[in-house]
């Protein structure tokens, strides 16, 4: 079988694969649409009982029954109701439904024995009426995965694609739940500002916090670039949660002037990994270089001659201060050097 025949076979295989894809995709989509419409809105269901160990007798009582008589959570309630998620409590909002019990579990045991009259008496006496909150789900005691499940339960059915790689991502598998970064009671505005992200990340990633204090660094400490410019904390198929498919693809998003492709490339260094030469967060060397020049380059390259002027050592100074004074196009170039090769000098 010659090359042409192989290509024809491959092309046909691709066509068949596409056909198989459509045959599977279309029925799944049609059946799936119907299922989703009939199951909307999302309601608190079975999984929560599993978390209420030993108290399967609890029942859902609704937010009004839970909070109407107790004013302790008024501000939290107000903030939450005004948030995007709280708005979903409106039956006419066309959004999936969610309320306090969606996360805190069924509340019937917590308010057992409480009456509006008792609350009124306590209020008159200047007391708050405590509910038996220990019968609710103790969220802090849940494993990280169960905490995340509370969020994922709704966010799995509304095409939330920033969570596409969440489950097999480094945070989920590292026992980091949604809670350390997202606080649904933070106020009515639940969207995170990029300015807040470094505090979230540095709570755990202290080594990186120190790296950003080195003399050469990306301006994260200054609040002028953000962890989320490069990383997607919700998970990606890259091991370090990089936003793009490779280190290089992530870097050239902002550093387009060195993206290439070039006629004269730095072997295949430019194919994927800028971190062979550059530190990603901070470095003691200028331009985030991992090691200072010329040692950085000498790790792979034979240095220029050192003994052409033994009296003054002048060429040593020229050749061994910064290689990039002459090889300035080290990321790649389209212009051949005087020798006709790609020495990155032109």
């Amino acid at each position: 079988m010659n090359v042409r025949e192989v290509r024809i076979v491959l092309t046909r295989l691709q066509s068949y694969a596409g056909l198989v894809f459509l045959l599977l995709f279309v029925p799944t989509a049609v059946v799936g649409c119907q299922t989703l419409r009939s199951s909307e809105p999302i309601v608190p269901i079975a999984e929560y009982e599993k978390m209420l160990v030993g108290r399967l007798d609890a029942d859902y009582v609704g937010t009004e029954n839970c909070l109407a008589a107790c004013h302790y959570h008024d501000q939290i309630r107000l903030d939450f109701e005004a948030s995007t998620m709280g708005a979903q409590m409106a039956a006419d909002s066309d959004l999936p439904m969610i309320d306090c019990e969606s996360c805190h579990g069924p509340g019937s045991l917590a308010i057992q024995g409480l009456t509006p009259e008792k609350v009124a008496v306590d209020a008159a006496a200047g007391r708050q009426t405590p509910c038996d909150y220990e019968t609710l789900i103790v969220l802090k005691a849940l494993p990280a995965q169960a905490q995340s499940l509370l969020c994922l339960k709704c966010h799995t059915a509304n095409a939330t694609f920033n969570l596409h790689e969440w489950n097999a991502g480094a945070h989920a598998l590292g026992d980091v739940s949604c809670f350390p970064c997202h606080d649904v009671h933070a106020g009515p505005d639940l969207i995170t500002s990029p300015k807040d992200t470094k505090e979230m990340c540095f709570k755990c990633h202290r080594e990186q916090a120190a790296e950003f204090r080195l003399p050469s660094h990306h301006p994260v400490m200054e609040g002028k670039s953000f962890c989320t410019d490069c990383h997607q904390p919700h998970g990606t198929f890259h091991d370090n949660l990089l936003r793009e498919e490779t280190v290089r693809a992530t870097c050239v998003r902002c550093h387009g002037e060195v993206e290439g492709p070039y006629l004269y490339a730095h072997a295949d260094l430019m194919n994927d990994d800028c971190t062979i030469c550059h530190a990603d967060h901070g470095s003691v060397n200028n331009n985030l270089l991992k090691l200072s020049e010329p040692y950085l380059c000498l790790q792979c390259h034979v240095g220029h001659r050192t003994s052409s002027d033994p009296a003054t050592g002048e060429t040593k100074g020229v050749f061994y201060t910064r290689c990039t004074d002459c090889h300035s196009q080290v990321h790649g170039t389209d212009v051949p050097s005087a020798s006709g090769r790609g020495n990155f000098t032109q």
Partner: peptide
């Protein structure tokens, strides 16, 4: 299972809601 549970709930009644004035 989810559908059966969902259908047993009185959604409109249980979740009557008015957006708070902020």
């Amino acid at each position: 299972d989810e559908l059966a549970l969902f259908e047993s709930l009185d959604i409109e009644g249980d979740y009557a809601y008015e957006f708070p004035a902020i």
